[in-house]
Amino acid sequence: MIAEILKNVAIVVVGLLPIMNPLTTIPLFMALTKHMSQDTRRLQARKACIYAFSILTAFLLLGNGIISLFGISLPGIRIAGGIIIMILALRMIFSGDDTSSAVDAEPSEIKKANLDYSFSPLAIPSLAGPGSIAVTMSFGSEIPPSHLIAGHMVVIVGIAITVGFAYLALSAAPWIEKALGDHGMQAVTKIMGFLLTCVAVQFLASGIRDFYVDFSQM
């Protein structure tokens, strides 16, 4: 029984981790928290992971009801996430940073550093994006009716482990930044901004395609 549970937890982690891919969130995290203290950065990473875990768990348990209640579809979530990521990515490309850099030089005047980016865009759509939500709901749909409680607990544990990997990745961001230096960070920010633009385009394209498929079947 224990071996079967561990096997199913591993399946959830293996299925969810590549979709969440916390490594792609590191450049966005570093850009958004550039003017924050180390303690604030750690708090942002912790809150982002808690939010991501809560979002994925909520969609696991209440996904179909949430979507029906608000009239939201997964294609709509994909397009909304793509737009948010596109805006942030273009700022990273053309300014080498995002709006968190648009602050006064005086430390007492740096108010943008106190902004909370943990829920959006770090938790959603970056960590708990449309793909992660879709995968989580797919795992939930495969739970046998005779093992609902145990099945949901297995998926929740898998989500927690995956989010734990994400927290480790975000926590390592300051060391990565120190290793690269200012010029290296600017180069990485622009490169990752381009890659995030590609991800955003993919989100938008897949969302539009799914919208077209849904409407063509009506």
Rank of each mutant, 00 (worst) to 15 (best):
K112T: 14
P174I: 09
A173G: 04
L74K: 07
I149Q: 10
L69C: 05
A45N: 04
Y212A: 06
G15S: 06
E177Y: 11
L56K: 00
I55E: 00
Q202V: 11
G158N: 01
S171H: 14
R41M: 07
A113F: 15
L62E: 06
T189N: 08
V13D: 03
S118C: 11
G131S: 07
N8P: 05
L148I: 13
A10N: 08
D39K: 14
M192H: 01
I84E: 05
C198T: 12
N64D: 10
I11A: 13
E142G: 11
G81A: 00
I50M: 13
H35D: 06
S138F: 15
I208T: 05
V103Y: 14
I143P: 01
R91H: 13
K190S: 03
G71M: 05
I143Y: 02
I50W: 15
L168P: 06
S138T: 12
G158D: 02
I161P: 03
M185D: 00
A31H: 06
C49N: 04
D98H: 15
F203A: 00
S146P: 03
P121N: 07
T33M: 06
T57S: 13
I161A: 05
M36N: 09
S216P: 08
V154H: 08
L60D: 00
A169M: 10
N114Y: 15
Q202P: 05
F53A: 14
I19E: 06
K111Q: 12
D104T: 11
M92A: 09
H152N: 12
F203V: 00
I159K: 04
S206V: 09
Q202T: 13
Y51F: 15
T25D: 05
T25H: 10
A113P: 12
A58I: 13
A172W: 15
F211H: 11
G65S: 14
R41H: 09
A80P: 08
L69I: 11
V13C: 08
S216M: 11
T162Q: 02
T99R: 03
Y117S: 09
S132H: 05
V201R: 07
P18N: 00
L69D: 00
E142V: 09
Y167D: 09
S132V: 11
F211N: 03
T25V: 11
I83T: 02
F70Q: 08
D182E: 15
I83D: 00
F29D: 04
T57I: 11
